[in-house]
Design a protein around this nucleic acid. Structure first.
Lengths: 215, 215
DNA sequence: TAATATGGCTAATATAAATTAGCTAAGGAG
DNA sequence: CTCCTTAGCTAATTTATATTAGCCATATTA
């Protein structure tokens, strides 16, 4: 319930601008204007432009850690209860992915920060590694574990789990990046993801009959 | 055999710098220094910093059009000779992708320009659309046509061609972007791509027996 | 050879951007 | 009520950067 402080609004506005134009291309003046104050006033809250950037980074790292914890619990949950895996259907997966994409695309902070990372990813080896870790490896690893469970429960055919996870996750990641660039393609991307998951399951599901309408 | 002119060296150096730091973050002074001349001398060759950027864009567009034409011919070639499709094996595909990735990663201009596009992709709707077209759609469409041929030749199982192309291409695209960020992971990425293609073919090839060592 | 265009240079200019200094009003703590 | 911290402001400072002006040597061409 606490009202939005100026300090927070600066972060929000800066993230918004940085995610469109990149750190260098945005002036403190622009940030200040977006917040509705004058540039020198910013320095009452942050000691430099770089400091604003760092604060954004720290805050988003905090949120990320939070969310990672949730995902881990979610998976541990499913693993604890063996026969939950056998209940997983195409629709379950579609729904899960839709939620994920919806969140990733529509949470302003999350999507803006991802765009910012995309723009700044070549700046340092640390950011590069962070980007891969956060936006590729984590999702792949999550689905490796998921598929391992599904194979063990005889819901999915056996195979190279890593490659399977890649084939499942990468089209989703690419769709996400397309939507980051061209939000107007979101509906189309979502329906492609839907088709992709059904096709994927029709290829890898043990129960071929009802897995999808792939034709 | 014509020697490298200063005008060209400026483009090269500018592309190199832009692809690391982004347009805004690079000064004309840095470009000049990289070329080995003083900043004002640049203006004997290009009328502004923006003009350098535009020239890079135009030149890379030219090369791109050239290469697209080649790919089209390559495909038309294969289509003309029906039974060439049936000769396509896992190894053929692996080799083709290795060549493509090798070129995309090791041709300095191509890889730097892709990084530049990645950094600047949110600047305008035109660049956004160009990026998707160039780095996603084109490869997907190419493989849709390839797979259509392979299905028709009964080499691959039938299915949703678009989804199949996505599942094939996207892991490759993601690997490429990982290597752009972290060149040290290239060997690992290549072997993952190899495994991916074998797994993909083991899932979609009609002749399951010899398609891959996926286990 | 004379004339000219080319491509380099230094010095100058203009502007934008980040940051600092220092004033002031408002709101809470003593 | 008084004091002091907070958070805003304007004005000033510093530095960086893009670009222009104008000089000079070399090389091409008539």
């Amino acid at each position: 319930m606490k009202q939005e402080t100026t300090k927070d609004r600066i972060l929000l506005s800066a993230l918004d601008l940085f995610s469109q134009y990149g750190y260098e291309a945005v002036s403190v003046e622009q940030i200040a204007t977006a917040v509705g104050i004058k540039a020198p006033s910013l320095y009452k809250h942050y000691k430099s432009k770089q400091d604003i950037f760092n604060a954004i980074f720290a805050e988003m790292q905090r949120r990320y850690d939070e969310q990672t914890e949730k995902m881990d619990l979610h998976l541990a949950d499913a693993a604890a209860d063996k026969n939950r895996f056998s209940k997983i259907t195409c629709d379950t997966l579609v729904k899960e992915v839709q939620d994920l994409i919806g969140y990733s695309l529509h949470d302003e902070c999350v999507s803006r920060f991802r765009r910012l990372m995309t723009i700044e990813q070549f700046r340092s080896p640390e950011i590069s590694a962070l980007y891969t870790q956060r936006y590729v490896d984590r999702l792949v690893q999550y689905h490796e574990r998921l598929f391992a469970g599904l194979i063990h429960a005889d819901v999915m055919k056996n195979g190279d789990i890593h490659s399977m996870a890649l084939q499942y996750v990468c089209p989703i990641l690419i769709s996400l990046s397309v939507c980051d660039r061209q939000p107007e393609l979101e509906a189309q991307a979502m329906s492609q993801i839907d088709a992709h998951i059904r096709q994927f399951m029709s290829a890898y599901h043990t129960d071929l009959g009802r897995a999808g309408k792939a034709t």
